[in-house]
Nucleic acid binder design. Sequence first.
RNA 1: CGGAGCGUAGCUCAGCUUGGUAGAGCGCCAGCUUUGGGAGCUGGAUGUCGCAGGUUCAAAUCCUGUCGCUCCGACCA
Length: 604
Amino acid sequence: MRWTQTFIPTLKETPADAEIVSHKLMLRAGLVRKLTGGLYTFLPLGLRVLRKVEQIVREEMDRAGAIEVFMPALQPPEIWQQSGRYVTAREVLYKVKDRANKEWLLGPTHEEVITTLVAGEISSYRQLPRNFYQIQTKFRDEIRPRFGLMRAKEFIMKDAYSFDITDAAAQVSYQKMYDAYTRIFARCGLRTLPVEADTGVIGGKFSHEFMVPAETGENEVVYCESGSYAANLEKATSRGPLEPTPTHSTGPAPEKFPTPGVLTIEALSAPPYGVAAPAQIKTLVLMVKRSEEAESEPVLVLLRGDDQLNEAKFAGALGTNVFRPATPEEVFAVLGAHPGSLGAVAATLKTPDLRVLADGALRGAAGMTTGANEDGFHLRHVDLDRDVRVTDWADLRTVRAGERGPVNGQPLKLRRAIEVGHVFKLGTKYSEALHALYLDEVGHQHPCVMGCYGIGITRTVQAIIEQCNDRDGIVWPLTTAPFAVCLTPLNVAPDHPAFGLAQTWHDELTARGVEVLLDDRDERPGVKFKDADLIGFPLRVNLGEKSLARGEVELKPRREGLRAVKVEQALSAILEWLDTESRRLAEGVCQPGNSALHDRSAAG
RNA sequence: CGGAGCGUAGCUCAGCUUGGUAGAGCGCCAGCUUUGGGAGCUGGAUGUCGCAGGUUCAAAUCCUGUCGCUCCGACCA
């Protein structure tokens, strides 16, 4: 390909609406252009990268035995009503109407469609297992699209759905996808960290997210250096807070004492009270909706004073994710006091059958201090077991860095990350709702056990840029670069030897299957060098008069120094470099332990 | 949806406080010079100042409304 024959609008200056480095570089390198918030046009270079990631995904999905299909993006609302998600997912659903005023949905995902297909086509255990996948545009009415392709209204996703006869078989399908994902991201040149993920209200422990460590990520992951534990913060557990919870009773009964104006844990831990945060009980009031029709009902949540509620864990413990903090008015109605003076001591409760969820870190807690449900007063000498009627115990706290990991007690670390893939064991939720049933050997009917597996293709493209860049621009891994080689003749006069040579090599390399871009622009060398570095071609070859006079050209790998080679050896040197580089990447694929934890230093 | 900020040339931005002929740099076009890390000089083209109202002799500037974008939060199969 010749530079002047394609369209590569690079920018010297950063567009004002880009915030993170990958977004800036995508725009500056001419990979994409914004149509409007959350909607982007892929320009030729961006499209080439996109196709490369798609191809890697396709090859690994095929290798893992998945079957490619292509489903409609436009979907009938009926199947969403059948699965129940017409209501639960309503906030992300784009709805359109046809001329007969019938409503249609733009698919944010395809569980309903694939399950409907399987329901009609598969009826025997002999036809299972099956894993169908597609690469397709998804539509989600994101409340706040941001960071370019990271969170968009329309994006490309690879989604796969497995159907098995038993739970055990579904686990095998799950593991195949997990392994395929590990290979996919390694081949893309991404260092990812698979973490245990929240399974939400569906429950179960089979969900992993593939995370790209990056300060700009929207997720937080918890991990330990030994690699024995890694989880999304929403899911992460530990052996508990570092500071122990007091367990020695300090008095025979709770004692009320005045605390005028004290509304926070901090205020109560300061003089003159001096009650350490771990010796306080934090009381939260949440309004929970058990079903669409039900009224919100209050639930008390007890945490240690220095802990934060983990809402995902709370949702899991409750079996619903429809809840919100109570308003001060609701709080007063329930407890007779305002936030700052709340507590769960049974004797102070107006409603004895109020549901009380307590975090495990409070087990056996004694000599604690908490609100008295009377504005301006607290209670001390509170013993959990003696004074509080806890309905349910659960792990509800958010893990903090430094705590001991659940697996081998190693200290936990926290860092931000971008989610690029998610594997999830679904169970029978959709197969039951949409009747994807099979007959077993003895003629009994069962719902298929399902799994779903997503990769954000467009997000992966940007994640690669976020991880592989330097001061001068993008540093593409060879496997996902828009072109492997950029030939840069410094003179493009038709009869100039540099240009002639570049054209010959371009044709020669192209014939050998190498993806070459010939920079045939009549620009000064500085412009060409800057653009090539900005876009980040793995290898640049400079053909200039000075070195040609010595019978040489220059090989400039994007992340290595300049190297002069004799003209007659140049082609084989280029091919050899590409060969070495692709072997180097392939080795990375074979070592999935290529720890994503140790960032930057090993980056491009 | 709550909070904050921004909409002026293709891009980055100044001008707005204190109303009075629409600006700079880059890019673009032409010419000359230059030619190994975003060249120099000369000349040129380019704007309903996001949109709609209002105030005023006069609005990019002040007021009201509205739309869009960005960030923080809430939300997020």
